[in-house]
Design a protein around this nucleic acid. Structure first.
Length: 288
DNA sequence: TGCAGTGTTGCTTC
DNA sequence: CGAAGCAACACTGC
């Protein structure tokens, strides 16, 4: 769930309790009991985002950080313990809602926060890579995964001049740089492919070769692709059902990611860069 | 059927 | 220091 949706649903709510079937989520404090003690009874005062970290402000100057990683989705709804014993995906299943209302998505609920309005904040997370941290705001914000983050690409302060500065003295392939959160925050595999297609730049291009025209094209593409993605509420989860993906508008406008052909009919190529797969159009994306 | 592939980091090794 | 490789986990799709 997008942060702006989450904000409208959970700000002002008190957290009554925490349930999980995967205590490894709790990285700080690292024991389930201490995490529960840190969370319980506090009121949610704000929801923000830094890169892909969801930051939930709590009374008493505390912060709950949740990173959804690859397969996590934060949802608001109601879940109940499964009665069947055939241990499928998780211990919980969605409470069947009244006819006509929306079923909370997420078969893979592994973490639940009970809220004081009777609803729950649930983490659906097939691969269980997500993490949750609770602590004093200053402690959380000083952790390396937050402190070392690069600029937010949609921040108005992120100007072309600042973008150019990021290239100074750096080597490597552009695809890997775009996905490096210490370089720019919040660009993952899909959007890096889409940005590079929009800019007409080959993912293996070397940073040292970038001149003014490429820097400008890339900067503009970062802004336009990400703005469109936010407007269309993001992409669906990879591996999710087609129906679940269809609700995420960005799925309809992807140019290269998981497509056979680009919009001009050229066959998409796939290569591996730094352990990730990169999709691109070999005709329209030039190697620098 | 089996195995490559998967909105992401972060640790270890060289 | 940087880069590469891979682990965390479990399912989908070819």
């Amino acid at each position: 769930m997008i942060v702006r949706d989450l904000r409208s649903k959970i700000v002002g709510r008190r957290i009554l309790g925490v349930q999980t079937d995967w205590p490894k989520y709790f990285r700080l404090p690292s024991s389930e009991a201490r995490f529960r003690a840190c969370i319980t009874g506090k009121v949610i005062t704000a929801v923000d985002r830094r890169s892909k970290n969801v930051l939930i402000s709590l009374t008493g100057d505390y912060l709950l950080l949740i990173h959804q990683k690859i397969s996590g989705r934060l949802l608001v709804g109601n879940w109940e313990r499964r009665s069947d014993s055939q241990t499928p995906h998780s211990l919980w299943q969605p409470v069947s809602p009244p006819r006509g209302s929306t079923v909370p998505q997420g078969r893979f609920i592994h973490l639940l926060f009970d809220l004081d309005d009777g609803r729950q904040l649930g983490l659906s997370d097939l691969r269980k890579f997500a993490k949750a941290l609770c602590g004093k705001r200053e402690v959380i914000l000083n952790r390396p995964e937050i402190r070392q983050l690069g600029p937010e690409p949609l921040d108005p302060q992120f100007t072309l001049a600042r973008f150019k500065q990021l290239f100074a003295g750096r080597k490597g392939r552009i695809k890997q740089m775009l996905m490096n959160p210490k370089f720019i925050a919040g660009i993952g595999n899909i959007y890096s492919d889409e940005i590079l297609y929009a800019a007409g730049i080959h993912p293996l291009s070397r940073l040292t070769k970038f001149q003014e025209p490429q820097l400008k094209a890339l900067y503009r593409s970062i802004k336009t692709v990400l703005k469109k993605a936010v407007r269309l509420r993001g992409t669906g989860i990879v591996g999710g059902s087609a129906a679940a993906r269809a609700e995420q508008g960005y799925d309809k406008v992807r140019m290269v990611y998981q497509r056979r052909e680009c919009p001009r009919g050229h066959e998409i190529q796939r290569i591996r860069i730094g352990g990730r797969s990169a999709r691109f159009c070999p005709v329209e994306q030039k190697l620098f």
